[in-house]
Write a protein that binds this DNA or RNA. Structure first.
Lengths: 346, 346
DNA sequence: ACTCTTCTTGCAAGCGCTTGCAACAAGGGT
DNA sequence: ACCCTTGTTGCAAGCGCTTGCAAGAAGAGT
């Protein structure tokens, strides 16, 4: 911004002040929050601003102690459409209140998260949206101490009460498992998610509970480790299929794993859902694009992003928020990848 | 940042100055670019900064005329994984140089683009990455006049020479069409992209040229309008299939349309690729997830994002860049959705 | 030993905006 | 007509940092 010659120089509040015949502080007040400005004055100022095509300089604004109108969004990675959908929701909602997004990805740099958080806070973000699966509570503590507004997305934090939004992972998994059971399945494989993630744990719990509630013996062979990604689902499914008594249905912890499962199953020469059923979790937009269309547990990702923003803005507005957690409902979406088990199977 | 009590106050260069016994301006110089600082002094300063866990305040930095280390990214929308992949590349590359991303979506607000550009420029972004399909040259002009660094992504701008990165849309479409021809197809349907987009035009041109180069009559019935989205591809395909002599292969302007095509074809009771071939463009990650796996023209989206960043940073560093255009090669990825036409078809 | 360069470093100003405080204008009440 | 209250507005200070300018430090040359 400083290495040039003829720059036309954007107008400042001083220009507006001169043009509208009031002092610059009055202009500032008229432009920002209300404060006590006579409405005729305000009109005059706004009019001048419009004519000058004034655009406030956010940097200066936040330096001087005002809002920066930026909120920082920290996500692990962009390649996952799970994240994209959340961001989509965030963006939608944020657009309404003319806040801007500063996007950070942790980029596999495990430890960098706290550094990023520090940067964001220091760079004047008004608040933070954290979609970081593995949260190190160290920076959460820091955030807390400073009363810095933030909300956790799809992430449970037990120790500290934080604002957070989350979906009914356990109930969703329960419902899904139950659905398979009602379809007649008794041998249901489970592809777990990334270890340590709250959502992974919860989904597994839902699966287990559903099984035991229906008097089905939990066979630990049927639970194989996945990583929430296609490849993990693929490998897990291979294991599952090579079991002596392979499951007649597979419940994958998320859609990505389910896609991997579909692939593995197909390679195995089996048909979905005739030979084996597959059920996912998330309901990514791709879920209805694969063949057969994936039956899955819908997680309101976009909604979650939205909701998080609403909470955050509220928290920025009225700092003394009491910590609460918004829980959004999941919903089983029945498509084509599940059917009753083939008769001849055990 | 200002509505609280006990805030621990982040350390500033003054704190560092005090601690290391030099003046604050020396600290500033030591921390930012080199300038002439004795290396022993610099060490002392850096050491102190480290101990204080100093994080520079970007707002202040850019206000004072330095870099803000933010680059603005303007995209139409986030729901499209085409965009996600580009951003992914941008993010990757930007992470190396510790720049931050300010993300803007035009959000269907057609006219808002120039407003966003103004905001970004005024909010201290050091440069802009524009992934905006329909560019109104009005703000491009403005950008140009101010010598503001920006690069266009996947977008050709004839009038003004801008820095831009783009893929070989025409050649890619040519190659794809040729592939279908070599497979034996003579009746190739084409689902066009969003009207007005450079990429759409180029792909259509590639298709046409390939046809004529191989002495195949261009039947205008075979070219139907799409919109680069699933729904558009679906509808277009329905039209194509209801033709008296339906095509034996469909070349969709992008993968999304191809997905729609697959859907429509399946609903029509036809099999891919036995009854009809489908070919896409983009090679989104989903392309290998659908069934059958989509044969498509790979567009190096991630690479394009990367390359754009490289160009932009260079342009920020050395403003007097001459305008150039980077053209990245597309590549035909052969998967399972194309096959020779069925014999019995005309 | 002394002057002239060449490095380094410090001072002050200022980026554009917010805000506490004081000053001033305008009604209300008696 | 006069004082107090409430509503408006202006001034100045300052957010944290960069940078032009000038002064001090340190060698180089004679």
């Amino acid at each position: 911004m400083s290495r040039d010659e003829k720059k036309p120089k954007a107008p400042t509040i001083f220009d507006i002040a001169r043009k509208s015949g009031v002092s610059y502080s009055t202009v500032s007040r008229a432009l920002s929050g209300y404060e006590f400005v006579k409405s005729s004055t305000r009109e005059k100022v706004l009019q001048a601003a419009r004519e000058l095509e004034y655009v406030p300089n956010q940097q200066a604004r936040s330096l001087a102690g005002g809002r920066s109108n930026m909120i920082g969004v920290l996500v692990p990675d962009l390649s996952n459409s799970y994240i994209s959908e959340i961001i989509h929701g965030i963006d939608d909602e944020l657009a309404k209140s003319d806040y801007n997004i500063i996007l950070y990805t942790t980029h596999r740099h495990q430890g960098k998260e706290s550094e990023y958080v520090a940067t964001m806070v220091n760079s004047g973000a008004d608040g933070l949206l954290l979609v970081v699966p593995l949260i190190s509570s160290s920076y959460l503590d820091a955030l807390h101490q400073q009363d810095f507004p933030y909300v956790l997305l799809d992430q449970m934090n037990e120790r500290k009460q934080s604002l957070s939004v989350i979906a009914t992972n356990r109930a969703g998994a329960y419902e899904a498992t139950q659905y398979l059971i009602e379809l007649g399945h008794r041998h249901i494989g489970f592809i777990s998610g990334l270890e340590g993630l709250n959502s992974a744990t919860e989904r597994l719990a839902g699966y287990k509970t559903a099984l035991s509630d229906h008097g089905i013996h939990l066979d630990s062979e049927y639970i194989v480790g996945g990583d929430f990604r296609v490849q993990g689902g693929y490998l897990a499914t291979q294991k599952l299929l090579s079991l002596q008594k392979p499951p007649t249905a597979i419940f994958a912890s998320n859609d990505m794993s389910a896609f991997g499962a579909i692939e593995a199953i197909r390679q195995h020469g089996l048909h979905i859902p005739d030979d084996i059923s597959v059920l996912g979790f998330d309901d990514l937009s791709q879920a209805s694009l694969v063949y057969p269309k994936l039956t899955t547990v819908h997680q309101p990702l976009v909604e979650m992003g939205r909701e998080a923003v609403i909470m955050l803005l509220e928290c920025i507005e009225y700092p003394a928020q009491e910590m609460r957690q918004t829980i959004l409902p999941t919903k089983l979406i029945i498509r084509d990848s599940c059917a009753p088990p083939a008769i001849m199977m055990t």
